[in-house]
Design a protein around this nucleic acid. Structure first.
Lengths: 120, 120
DNA sequence: CTTGTATATACCTTGACACGTATATGCTGA
DNA sequence: TCAGCATATACGTGTCAAGGTATATACAAG
């Protein structure tokens, strides 16, 4: 389970992460909200913690888990080159549509409102 | 292998995607560059295609594979809420450092150059 | 100290998937 | 049509990880 990619391949773990976006939660809360067995939750949390997705603090008998940016940012970094790739394609599409704009008589249609198109 | 997350959990598949960022490649080229057996390449490409990461066109006997934004954008969309989360934390850190700035006598240190800090 | 509650860990079984080897399909040029 | 190259698929095998059940640890309250 070394890689962050393998870690988020598991649906229950993604659910836990999504749950933690709003605020930190105890193991029991996660268990109830996601309807998962308690050992399952603990095991997933362990994996998430060791991979740098979450961290925990002890509060009496409970443990509160919260998100930690590290691993998620690693994912984001991996995506960066691809993001560049597809935004280039969007640019090309926009330029193409702009050419259509200029060569088409200004006849407003209901289905597509070109004015809302935006150049970044 | 329904989910895009499971698809990119496989290291060889990520390698293929990274290779395709630069330009489209034939199966044989991928095979040689990544030193993978040919059936392995074909099988991974099938998975990537069915998940919407790549598409292919036939060029005589070869098949050229190239990136397709769909699945990658799906990944990016999933990351969005978390991105908001950690940029909030960066903001908080910056505000904290700014407070330190104002309450600290302007004594320039070698190790940290606060002037380079940037507000987005 | 004992009982109860919260969380973690151990062990087992099962299923998925990655790889290798072998073979099939499809196109090309002689 | 046949030989050869490029790619896809079938099948068998081994590995790994997820979930269930049982149990351990840790803290709290009476």
């Amino acid at each position: 389970m070394e890689s962050v990619f393998a870690v988020i391949a598991e649906p229950n773990r993604r659910a836990i992460l999504s749950l933690l976006v709003s605020s930190e939660q105890s193991v029991g809360e996660i268990e109830r909200r996601l309807r998962m067995a308690q050992p399952t939750v603990s095991k997933h949390l362990r994996v998430l913690r060791e991979a740098g997705f979450v961290e925990s603090t002890v509060e009496a008998q409970r443990r509160l888990y919260r998100l930690k940016p590290d691993a998620l940012q690693e994912l984001d970094a991996w995506l960066a080159p691809f993001r560049r790739f597809w935004s280039a394609r969007v640019d090309a599409l926009e330029r193409h549509l702009d050419r259509l704009d200029r060569s088409t008589p200004p006849k407003t249609t209901k289905t597509t409102n070109r004015k809302t198109r935006r150049r970044r």
